[in-house]
Design a protein around this nucleic acid. Structure first.
Lengths: 220, 220
DNA sequence: AGCCATAGTGCCACTCAGTGGCAGAAGCCA
DNA sequence: TGGCTTCTGCCACTGAGTGGCACTATGGCT
């Protein structure tokens, strides 16, 4: 596999597992892109990678899951970095933004970005993939909130107003991320990772502005 | 059915259809609550309501769909009201909030609220239901943006910065709604519709505050 | 080197969500 | 009443996802 980062010598068993996983993701993205998500059965995918369906389901939770893997990897890494982050006293939403930008920067690079691109284009055409991705982000949001609450804020009283505020800050991060993804996925010009980071930064900056936006009376 | 609002004499066929739909929703919520979402097969549900599975799938798109119907109804009504809304020149996010509050106010009442409660509790325990609800909200968000753009804002250039701001305003609305739902669903005290409205209002008000929230260095 | 204990794999049969097709039963409009 | 349309029921079928069990490879231990 092109992205088989050996990693500091994991046990052989683990490496094999990772290689199978990556092969499944790559093949899935290619096949789904060629013939559509519904146009490919799991049996076909498994045949291609020469793995039994049983094994597939030990690695991924569902057919959607394998195609969402690139984003999955990003958010998992994000949570790890958030766990390490040291706030400098700035606004929480800026901290979250910077942690995500940092995580993005440390992603495998352009092949990863390419996989994300394929994954998003697929999701745009397939409701169940879209739903899966959304649900995953939501779960990650909850996990992120737990970390934020534990490390940066109040002890954990769930009806503390700051708890709600922190949750909304996380929601805003996720929303900005999705808007960044949207414009990056749609706008063909620059499918590089840097362009994605820029799009996200732009969306993130627009969040405070959106509150000031006035509803003008339209012509109708 | 308890909520069979006759409506200004629809054709008999339509009324029958609505009654069947409502029966399916009610039975589904009861059965799923009793025995879990996965503990009830569609065949069982259909037997209970005395409807063929084929008919079920003409009314709902999936097993998840039937259990998410209460929220579905709310957002559909929301879009209709948004289409009629006349902005008074205030911030967009306040307009959106007020339209949603108005829609909520016009919902069938406490039986509806009760169904929402069951639906949310179910979703909290079942990932695929949760995903379905999230995806639906996302699609509604897009539809709402279309209306907003068409009626209140720019002509529709998708890279106008106001377009992005409007989108984020919608995202914020959805996020606040979910937070409101969360606290309402969890907090047992007041399962009435008014309490839900209050929870949403609270979450909505917390949105601007969340931007100001500072990340303090925790004890770790 | 040799040898278990364990984890991962393949295979098989099974359940159940979701779909397509067709025949029959309403509801609808004269 | 009769014909037209639309909805419904039934049946067979695909494909996702699961459970069970036997088999093999890995890693640790002596």
């Amino acid at each position: 596999m092109d992205s088989a980062r050996p990693a500091p010598q994991l046990p052989l068993r683990e490496r094999k597992k990772l290689r199978t996983r990556q092969a499944l993701v790559d093949s899935a993205l290619v096949l789904f892109t060629e013939r559509g998500f519904d146009g490919v059965t799991l049996d076909e995918l498994c045949d291609t990678v020469e793995v039994s369906k049983r094994t597939f389901f030990r690695t991924f939770t569902s057919k959607e899951d394998v195609a969402c893997a690139p984003l999955h990897d990003l958010w998992t890494a994000f949570l790890e970095e958030l766990e390490q982050a040291r706030p400098q006293g700035g606004p929480l939403h800026e901290l979250l933004r910077d942690v995500l930008l940092g995580t993005l920067d440390r992603m495998p690079g352009e092949e990863w970005a390419h996989r994300v691109l394929l994954s998003r284009r697929l999701a745009a055409r397939n409701p169940s993939m879209d739903a899966h991705g959304l649900a995953f982000c939501d779960r990650t949001g909850r996990a992120a909130l737990d970390i934020v609450v534990r490390r940066f804020e109040l002890g954990g009283v769930p009806d503390d107003p700051d708890h709600l505020r922190a949750r909304l800050a996380v929601d805003l991060l996720v929303a900005a991320w999705h808007r960044g993804l949207d414009s990056w996925t749609t706008g063909a010009p620059a499918p590089e990772r840097a362009a994605l980071a820029a799009a996200f930064r732009r969306a993130s900056a627009a969040a405070p502005e959106s509150l000031a936006l006035t509803a003008r009376t339209g012509p109708a």
